[in-house]
C-alpha cells in the first residue's frame, strides 16, 4: 500500500501515480490554496489520483496528472480544437473528443451580442478554451480568453487537421519547444494549432509542406527527442 505521504511532495512529482494514490495532504500544507488539474480529486483533506500517469506540478500551486489517451477528459482551462456538430439557438454543439459533446454558447465570443451571432456550418474547426468541466454536465467552451478578448480563439480556416494522442499534443505544447517543431520550424514556414484534446491543425502555403509536417508529427509519437531530430533531418534532406 501507498504509505501516507508525509508531505513528501517533491518525491511524487514527475513520478508515475495510479488511481487511488494519495498524493497530497492538505492538513499538512502551509499554503492550502492549490489548483487541481485533470486526474486529481479532493476527498476531505486528501488529494487522490483518478487516472494513471505522471504527476506534474507547476509553480506556484498547480497540480495535474499527465497521461496519453485517444479520448480526452475535459478540464477547465485547457485549449482544445473542436468540430462544430450542430447549432442550436443558444449553443453550438462542439465535438472535442470528450465522452459528451461540449456546448459553446453563441455569446461566448469577443463582443458577442444577440445581434452578431457568428454562423458556423457543420464541420467547422474551432480553436476554443474549456471554461467549465463539471462531472455530469456537458463541458462548456468559450472562444475568448478570461479577460474577454478573442486572443487567437475562433474558427480555423483552411489547413489540415489530424488527430493524435493527448500525450503527443502535450509534447508539442511543451516549453521549451520540442525538438521536432524546432527543427521543422528552422527549415519550413508553417502555422500550427495544438489542442490538448489530441487534435493538431497545420497550415502552410503549399500542401506538400502541410503533409510533411503532419506526417512527421504523427510519426513522432513514440520517438525520443534525439530520434525526432534525426527523423526530421532525414525527411527534410529527402524533400529538398
Amino acid at each position: 500500500m501507498e504509505s501516507k505521504p508525509s508531505n513528501s511532495l517533491s518525491s511524487l512529482i514527475d513520478q508515475q501515480v495510479f488511481p487511488g494514490d494519495v498524493v497530497l495532504d492538505l492538513s499538512k500544507m502551509a499554503n492550502q490554496t492549490i489548483k487541481l488539474g485533470s486526474g486529481l480529486r479532493q476527498e476531505g483533506d486528501a488529494i487522490s489520483v483518478m487516472k494513471a500517469g505522471k504527476l506534474r506540478f507547476a509553480k506556484p500551486n498547480k497540480y495535474w496528472v499527465e497521461s496519453s489517451h485517444k479520448r480526452y477528459v475535459p478540464c477547465a482551462g485547457d485549449t482544445v480544437l473542436g468540430i462544430v456538430v450542430d447549432s442550436k439557438a443558444d449553443n453550438f454543439l462542439v465535438d472535442i473528443k470528450s465522452p459528451t459533446i461540449a456546448f459553446l454558447p453563441v455569446l461566448a465570443f469577443e463582443g458577442g451580442t444577440r445581434r452578431n451571432i457568428p454562423k458556423f456550418e457543420v464541420g467547422t474547426l474551432l480553436y476554443a478554451r474549456v471554461v467549465k468541466a463539471n462531472t455530469g454536465m456537458n463541458p462548456e467552451l468559450a472562444c475568448m480568453d478570461a479577460s474577454g478578448k478573442a486572443a487567437e480563439f475562433g474558427p480555423l480556416k483552411d489547413g489540415y487537421m489530424f488527430e493524435s494522442s493527448t500525450g503527443l499534443s502535450r509534447m508539442l505544447l511543451n516549453s521549451p519547444t520540442c525538438p521536432l517543431l524546432e527543427t521543422l520550424g528552422k527549415k519550413l514556414a508553417f502555422e500550427i494549432a495544438v489542442g490538448l484534446n489530441g487534435r493538431v491543425w497545420v497550415n502552410a502555403t503549399s500542401p506538400s509542406i502541410i503533409i510533411l509536417v503532419a506526417n512527421s508529427i504523427m510519426k513522432s509519437e513514440s520517438l525520443s527527442p534525439v530520434q525526432q531530430k534525426i527523423m526530421v533531418d532525414n525527411l527534410l534532406q529527402r524533400v529538398q
Binding site: 450542430d86 454543439l93 459528451t100 500542401p207 502541410i210
Partner: peptide
C-alpha cells in the same frame, strides 16, 4: 453524437486541393 467520428470542412478541402497536385495526406 459524441461517439461518431466526423470530419472537418478543412480536411475535406485539403484532401481535394492536395490531390490536384498529386499529393495524398499520407
Amino acid at each position: 453524437l459524441a461517439n461518431a467520428w466526423r470530419m472537418t470542412v478543412n480536411e475535406k478541402k485539403f484532401i481535394e486541393t492536395a490531390l490536384l497536385s498529386d499529393l495524398r495526406i499520407d
